[in-house]
Design a protein around this nucleic acid. Structure first.
Lengths: 348, 348
DNA sequence: TCCCGAAGTTCGATTTAAATG
DNA sequence: GCATTTAAATCGAACTTCGGG
């Protein structure tokens, strides 16, 4: 490996001067262009690349951000990760990706490993989180800039980026209602998920506003489960249950897209066609939704933008730390967007 | 930050002794249990965590593996990444994830960044690769253990893990043939993809073995494109074209699952039901395939196992380097598995 | 000679303080 | 005092060498 001393020897200057020149440090003003040229050429010639370990040791910086996901296999992650990656790339940071598998020990071990690596920031993708929220509290004391995506929280220590679930829930029902649907089945999210209740609040709000009465016989809940795929299976079973009980409904509002897929499957199995005999709307707009047959109408979370936003917040935090400024945590709530495709249809 | 010297002071021993004890170095045999206890307690009390920068600087090790993906949004990546993550975790390595977006400059920049970080190994997920293969040759000179997933290559410097495309292609056609299908449409992969030709070779081999004549009017090719989603759109358009030309076929063999999704969509749009009027088979078994309506019959690549396998190879390489052993690159070809679901049906 | 522990060097880059002309 | 350059200290851990008992 070629070191700064090799460059010094090759160029005929001291390693101090080489360092100053190559980093374009303040003192570089005093160094005559000839010297700079010579040093540059020497470095070039030798193919010198500074040792990041040594650099980090002095500067205490890693130019690395930790990314913690609770379950990678959730399709929700993909685009968020893309947003994170892309924004970090612009800023010349590199992400260390960890997948907690919704396991407590794994969370703790990974957090320790990341902290040991002196990550400068941390982004947590709490998409399908069934761990004690107290775990997240542990993060607070780590005192590194942290942003959580998909889990609302108060407080000054950690930032958060979430979609406005209430607005989204409202939009979903409003869409079905505007199409003339009145007998609507609902599959709500599991109690343990922070998204569930605001999303349902939005639905109720819309129902109230449009004087729609919700039939409690048509409301079912997703069970708790650590596995995001399970919402597909649960969506399937719950819908099947509804059908078997001969509940009449012309539309179904699912907690998320996976649930909607399960519901569509159940409907198809019973010979009910979507959207001809039953409209279905999901939530999230994960990648497969656009590819589904029929393409799924859903409420989109701007996932890539949310990833980018989280990185932005964390980067601001890092800069604040570097400049020894205090900075308050920011809590961003981004607007969802109704995406009308072909799984919903007007009753008229 | 608490350093080893703080622990030394606290425990009353020198930093040397502390280092020996905490690392359980060979010399630790000579150190009496009392001393060890005292040092351990001091470390515990102060919450000492060794500085990885300093450690890496001396040991020249980063305990980090670079992971390079050509397009994260390809659903193919998800499970492979899970396999990689999980296996690295067992071995206490951390992955740095980079997404090349199929862009040359990005590839080069990321590679440089990873090398600067002194990654100990590199895993390349060449799933939807439309860059010059020569780029990969650049990797050779990096001289760090490297494994490529999804792209066959010879040579001793880099290892590879691929699915046996020929066997897979064979199995796909064999399945359709065994169901009684004789008029079969084919959507082949783009020429630029290394998977395309062996997969097709398998198909032809099976056709020959079962004396099935392939109708060239029913064979179409996916265009080149950097975007993996494009195979959905192309699958849609190509199938639509086939239908518009009134080509008769009772089954369709798609290059991959995304293409199959596009084909199903086109069939549905023309009022053709799957599998009643046309069977469709894909390749890969990406996550959405099982959730599709109808659930897609496909040829599964054991993606998680392939990720794990690549990590295994790289880890072996790392150990070889540490022990200054020479080690030959390994080229693993794993068997695919036919997954029969509901998008294919017997003609009888 | 064996056991225990400490002093000092090394890894490679940055930075402070100081030395030249 | 000014422009130009550098010796030496520093970051934190690990390893080599050495000395005392």
């Amino acid at each position: 490996m070629v070191t700064i001393r090799d460059v010094a020897k090759e160029s005929g200057f001291s390693s101090t001067t080489v360092s100053i020149v190559l980093n374009d440090a303040p003192l570089a003003r005093y160094i005559p262009p000839v010297t700079k040229k010579r040093i540059m050429r020497a470095a070039q010639k030798l193919g010198y690349r500074p040792n990041q370990f040594a650099r980090s040791l002095r500067s205490k910086r890693s130019h690395t951000v930790g990314v913690m996901v609770f379950d990678m296999t959730d399709p929700y992650c993909t685009l968020v990760l893309r947003g994170i990656e892309n924004t970090l790339y612009q800023a010349s940071y590199l992400p260390i990706l960890t997948d907690v598998h919704n396991e407590r020990v794994r969370f703790e071990r990974y957090l320790e490993m990341l902290l040991d690596r002196r990550i400068e920031g941390l982004i947590v993708l709490a998409n399908w989180l069934f761990l004690d929220i107290n775990l997240l509290a542990d993060l607070e004391k780590s005192s590194i800039p942290t942003a959580i995506i998909g889990c609302e929280l108060k407080g000054d220590s950690m930032s958060s980026v979430i979609v406005d679930n209430e607005v989204g829930g409202y939009a979903a029902l409003e869409h079905l209602h505007s199409l003339g649907h009145r007998k609507i089945a609902f599959i709500r999210g599991p109690k343990g998920l922070t998204d569930s209740s605001p999303r349902w609040r939005g639905v109720r709000k819309c129902a109230k506003a449009s004087r729609l009465e919700l039939d409690t016989c048509l409301i079912v809940d997703l069970p708790e489960s650590r596995d995001p795929i399970s919402s597909f299976e649960a969506g399937f079973k719950l819908t099947e249950g509804l059908i078997k009980q001969k509940r009449q409904f012309t539309a179904l509002l699912a907690f998320d897209d996976m649930t909607a897929f399960g519901a569509i499957r159940a409907l198809a199995k019973s010979g009910l066609r979507v959207p001809e005999q039953c409209s279905v709307i999901g939530f999230d707009d994960v990648a497969p939704s656009a590819l589904y047959t029929p393409p799924l109408t859903t409420v989109r979370q701007p996932m890539e933008a949310m990833g980018a936003s989280a990185v932005g917040v964390v980067l601001d935090g890092i800069n604040a730390v570097l400049e020894k400024r205090e900075i308050a945590a920011s809590h961003r709530r981004v607007a969802p967007e109704l995406v009308v495709r072909e799984s919903t249809r007007s009753l008229l």
